[in-house]
Design a protein around this nucleic acid. Structure first.
Lengths: 120, 120
DNA sequence: TTGTTAATTAACAATCTGGTTAACTGAAAT
DNA sequence: ATTTCAGTTAACCAGATTGTTAATTAACAA
């Protein structure tokens, strides 16, 4: 529901979790299948999955003895939107940032994009 | 130099830091100016800035008594690229994900990836 | 029923985070 | 030279994160 940028970005900050998402992008998988490529224990994977589910990036359902997980990329759209609103800054190039700002004064969020910046 | 996705995403996971970036998107600012909108102490802001600088999202230089900070959005491009490679998953829509995967089997990364796909 | 397999929960430790206040540093102003 | 201002560093705290191993639950197989 809320699926804040906080939870999205912080879920994505971990390389194991990004690897899990990459794996799920190729198709559904059980917890065991997801754990296989890693050296870390199954409980550790299980908790990474809880984090990903809390961030609404993964959904899963019990299926007999297994738990089948699949990607839910919807929340990534919000993060992408946020980043897009900064695109002009890296397009413009660092060296021209000053002049750019001078000739295009803007407001918050970072400005044009309005995005969905959520302060506390 | 390395500016990993780890450091980028984890820097972005904090709302105060995102607010600082939004503020800097409007123009340079001193540490005090950045701290003003928040109720938290100046040392706290100072450390948020250290995190942002470590993630190469902000650069700063001493200027007399002050420290002037400015946005360095370059690192956001990497995060954006990563997210873009998942765009098709949220474009496709959750309900059609299964069929999509069945008719377009892919590899890792999450796959077709190729990044830099500017569909916007 | 008994055992096996898949996965979660529990309990624990180490480390990281984000905040605090107090003390310090360096530049500017008096 | 002293004070004041802007900011960082130090020491500390509470709570979250990430991992571990051991115990537990749930479903299936014998």
């Amino acid at each position: 529901m809320p699926t804040t940028l906080d939870s999205t970005f912080s879920a994505l900050a971990d390389p194991t979790r990004r690897a899990i998402l990459a794996r799920l992008a190729q198709g559904e998988a059980t917890v065991g299948e997801l754990a296989a490529p890693f050296r870390i224990s199954m409980p550790a994977i299980s908790r990474h999955l809880r984090v990903l589910e809390a961030a609404s990036l993964v959904r899963s359902e019990r299926e007999g003895k297994h738990r089948r997980c699949r990607l839910d990329a919807q929340a990534l759209a919000g993060a992408s939107d946020w980043l897009e609103s900064y695109r002009r800054f890296w397009n413009a190039g660092l060296d021209r940032l000053d002049t750019y700002l001078k000739r295009a004064p803007q407001q918050p969020g970072p400005g044009k994009g309005n995005s969905r910046a959520k302060s506390r």
